[in-house]
Design a protein around this nucleic acid. Structure first.
Length: 531
RNA sequence: GCGCGCGUAGCUCAGUUGGAUAGAGCGCUUGCCUCCGGAGCAAGAGGUCACAGGUUCGAGUCCUGUCGUGCGCGCCA
């Protein structure tokens, strides 16, 4: 149908020609031409069984492809402020980014996993004051009220005590200008250590932690500005007042602006505040220039959906800084609704009832957390029910997929006990011709989809596709399994039928390989048995 | 007011980068099973893909507009 115009022939005629050429090919069982100009190909069962052989030969590299051609890609994810432990809100983007990074690495990209540490803003000063308060408290010298807008976390009590034990009253009467940097640095170090601990518990390991302050100290910010200046993209100007909301504080002040509108942004963006301080956005320029200079021409930022307003300006920034050499894809993750048996789990910071990521991991396990985070597209809200996700039922996708893997292992153990098992090395050579049932072939066809799924997921930057695929694959397996109840001849292990048993063990192993590979890509460990 | 995302079966959601009769789970209807390797199994009904236009051989998918919904809207992060 696409060829009809250039070829100057009606689609149906072309289809007939192509169909004729296809008819003689091996593995082609039937070719039919349909209405507007479709060609329907039926492949022989033998072809599908050959796909199974490919899985067995490739093992855990089945589905792999060199789509990235070694191109460097930077994936920034998590990047939580170092002011407290990770909570469940950070979790989704973290899992998403990590799974995506795994996937891209699997598909031929040179992946750098980056954590950008916001150690330079007002937030960390607030942290410093909170630590200082706890320090005074530990000295029994606390002022009557904690500083306004502070971090009440218990971890800071511990840190305050530690500093009190080490430094005694050294900072008790010091001026804020003297103690602030010290307490800030101690606070950041402590929080970052906790964050890394929780990331480790989630099975996440970044390649690089980039400090915002460090970037500025190394002159990255000046360099970014120089580049924009050289391209005529900086100017002093007054922005129009934002419309829609009545803002009483608005004053027309000239600011240093980046002409982001030249790259599709809605309005030019300030790089310096009226007080002369760099804006957060200015530092983001440095951050992304840094990525570019480290060789990443492709970048992905994983952010919360509330950062949607940043997408245009960041893409503009990357285009401008790289002179069009680099591109940025921003993946926004929607909220996670925490539930407890259907009841919303209200998380209030003031009541100290924030659900930390660690709490959830301890409760349901890291594999469950990771899998569930990918059971929705990133731009759709997600329910996370602490009770449901551990249920052993059909509508719990984690269980359903893990159950499939465990079931296979169970059969394999039984096979070994009965002396029916084949050595792994012999599997690829197994005669698969006994696999003729429609349920078996359906399963094989599902397996054969794996490379396409991975390719699409990698190209679209959509790791959730893997989780959905694994669910479909598990369903095809369980369907075949259930057939064995009604039809004993479909069972996997049959002592009197060594040929079909061998073929089915090969099918099972291929299935296990794909399940395990898919699970590992999203960072979930396949289970050997259910507990 | 402007920008971005979302709107698909009663509910929760997929949809392979524009392909044919739009899929899955739950729920519902109807059958089956004392089953053993641990969630019981199977079949069926159910959709104007928010609405209206447009692009073309062909639209859930792309464009325009409308409605609904969520998020964001100089200097905070």
């Amino acid at each position: 149908m696409l060829l009809a115009k250039p070829a100057g022939q009606p689609p149906l005629v072309l289809a007939e020609l192509l169909a004729e050429a296809l008819r003689g090919l091996p593995f082609v069982q039937a070719v039919a031409v349909a209405k507007p100009g479709f060609i329907n190909l039926s492949l022989t069962d033998q072809f599908w069984r050959a796909q199974l052989q490919r899985v067995l030969q490739a093992g855990s590299s089945y589905g792999r492809a060199d789509l990235g051609r070694g191109q460097r890609i930077n994936v920034e994810y998590c990047s939580a402020n170092p002011t407290g432990r990770l909570h469940i809100g950070h979790c989704r983007g973290t899992v998403f980014g990590d799974a995506l990074a795994n996937l891209l690495a699997h598909m031929g990209w040179d992946v750098v996993r980056e954590f950008y540490v916001n150690d330079g803003g007002a937030q960390v000063d607030r942290l410093a004051r909170s630590v200082h308060y706890r320090y005074l408290e530990a000295l029994s010298a606390a002022p009557p009220l904690p500083p306004g807008d502070w971090y009440p976390s218990e971890d800071l009590i511990v840190l305050g005590r530690a500093i009190a034990a080490e430094d005694r009253d050294r900072w008790q009467h010091a001026a804020e200008a003297d103690w602030l940097p010290v307490f800030r640095s101690r606070g950041i170090d402590t929080m970052l250590a906790l964050i890394r601990e929780d990331l480790a518990a989630l099975g996440v390991q970044h390649d690089i932690f980039v400090s915002e302050v460090g970037l500025v100290e190394r002159g990255m910010l000046e360099r970014a500005l120089a580049i924009l200046e050289a391209r005529g993209l900086l100017y002093e100007g007054v922005l129009p007042a934002p419309k829609g909301k009545p803002d009483e504080d608005w004053e027309p002040v000239p600011l240093l602006l980046f002409r982001s509108t030249a790259f599709g942004d809605d309005v030019d963006r300030p790089l310096k505040s009226s007080s002369g301080a760099w804006t957060y956005f200015a530092k983001d320029l440095a951050c992304h220039l840094n990525k570019f200079e480290r060789g990443a021409h492709a970048m992905i930022d994983v952010l919360g959906a509330d950062h949607g307003g940043y997408v245009k300006r960041m893409r503009a920034a990357v285009t401008a800084l790289s002179d069009g050499q680099a591109s940025l894809d921003v993946k926004l993750c929607q909220l996670v609704n925490m539930l407890d048996a259907g009841q919303p789990l209200r998380m209030s910071r003031r009541a100290g009832r924030i659900v930390t990521l660690r709490d959830v991991i301890d409760e349901v396990g890291k594999d469950v957390v990771r899998f569930i985070m990918l059971t929705r597209r990133n731009d759709a809200p997600l329910d996370f029910d602490l009770v449901k996700v551990t249920e052993q039922s059909r509508d719990n996708p984690v269980f359903y997929v893990q159950y499939a893997h465990a079931r296979i292992r169970s059969v394999q153990r039984h096979a070994a006990e009965a002396g029916l098992a084949l050595a792994d090395a012999d599997l690829p050579g197994t005669d698969l011709s006994p696999l003729v049932d429609a349920f078996e072939l359906a399963l094989i066809k599902q397996l054969a989809q794996f490379p396409r799924i991975l390719a699409a997921a990698a190209q679209q930057h959509e790791p959730h596709r893997i989780a959905f695929y694994l669910g479909d694959l598990a369903a095809a397996f369980h369907a075949l399994w259930n057939q064995g109840k009604e039809r004993p001849e479909l069972r996997f292990l049959r002592a009197d039928e060594p040929a079909s048993t061998a073929a089915r063990l090969a099918l099972l192993e291929a299935l296990r390989i794909v399940l395990a590979t898919g699970l590992e890509l999203i960072g979930v460990a396949p289970v050997e048995e259910l507990i």
